[in-house]
């Protein structure tokens, strides 16, 4: 690693870091308030539990799938709906960029589960990092973060010993959208609540049209979104089968054989494969710049204005 640079201007360094993220394809990036994360995250899951001398947490978000992808059958969307890999690639590059440019240590934060605590406890909450960096706000859809311009994004984090001035959380929460408030006033549910295939969402909206209460049954959601958890359950069913025929039919069910396919090809389709709440969310898919074509048009307009 290059020698630590002296006299780094934190504001200038932050500008370079965020420019790197956007240049590499992130739609939004920010620096989270480390003190706020430490105040919220439980012991064992704070940034300094992973990197003892961390001074800054950078969060970045990339866009979801194309507009066309939102229209395909769910069983196809399950294979290619997630775009988080792009976010991780940018974060990985950013950690090298920081070390090379500023001579300060940096890590791409593993987005994975805590191996001591099972499949539902992450090492770090990338959601909390993004929220505290001001690039997403919690929605009624199980606290999935939404952005008023970019809609639904995938997030990645970088921890670094480089000191950067933090951003704050968003001033406004885009969820619920006005059309969701209208639907709630009419039937007592928002689209995400109504169309969830396992009915894992419920909540209330107050008189001002803001979120009053959000209820999320993560265990039910996991049945649709964390298919890797199915594998041990299926194996248990197979081993407990009462007869050879039952065992054979359990092992060779098409949906069970698909699990082996996904594992053998390393498909990301083993996790986060259900998009039904986001499919019907007007912010996730219809926010002004959620659509990649609109983003391109906006970028071209901005370039034209800059050239004039």
């Amino acid at each position: 690693m290059p020698k630590r640079k002296r006299d780094i201007d934190p504001e200038e360094a932050k500008k370079k870091v965020l420019e790197y993220c956007l240049r590499k394809g992130a739609l939004a990036a920010g620096v989270a308030d480390l003190d706020a994360i430490n105040r919220i995250a439980p012991a064992g899951h704070r940034p300094n539990d992973m990197m003892p001398r961390v001074k800054s947490v950078i969060s970045l978000g990339v866009g979801g799938q194309t507009q066309g992808a939102w229209t395909v059958p769910a069983k196809a969307m399950a294979f290619f709906g997630s775009t988080e890999g792009r976010a991780y690639t940018i974060a990985y590059g950013l950690s090298f960029f920081i070390e090379r440019t500023f001579g300060e240590r940096a890590i791409y934060t593993p987005p994975d589960i805590d191996p001591e605590l099972g499949p539902r406890v992450p090492l770090q909450s990338l959601k909390l990092h993004a929220e505290m960096a001001g690039i997403g706000a919690r929605s009624l859809a199980g606290d999935i973060l939404l952005h008023p311009e970019y809609g639904y994004m995938y997030f990645a984090s970088v921890f670094t010993e480089l000191e950067l001035p933090p951003d704050g959380p968003m001033r406004e929460n885009p969820c619920p959208a006005p059309s969701c408030v209208s639907m709630y006033r009419s039937i007592g549910r928002t689209p995400c609540m109504k169309f969830c295939p396992v009915q894992c969402l419920s909540g209330t909206i107050d008189e001002d049209g803001n979120q009053a209460e959000m209820n999320y049954d993560m265990a039910a959601c996991a049945e649709m979104t964390q298919q890797y958890e199915t594998i041990s359950s299926v194996m248990n069913e197979v081993m407990s089968a009462a007869s050879a025929e039952e065992r054979e039919s359990l092992l060779h069910k098409p949906e069970h054989k698909t699990l082996w396919y996904k594992m053998s090809v390393g498909s990301g389709g083993l996790l986060a494969q259900c998009f039904e709440c986001m499919r019907v969310c007007p912010i996730a898919t219809q926010a002004p710049l959620a659509d990649p074509i609109r983003r391109l048009e906006a970028a071209e307009d901005a370039a034209e204005e800059a050239a004039e």
């Binding site: 059958p73 769910a74 069983k75 399950a78 295939p197 199915t230 299926v234 069913e237 949906e255 039904e276």
Partner: peptide, 20 residues
Amino acid sequence: ESRRFRTGHYKRLYKLGGGK
């Protein structure tokens, strides 16, 4: 968590999307 996990619910996704 494992005992409550219903492996059969995932099939619901196969009928959704594409306007459904």
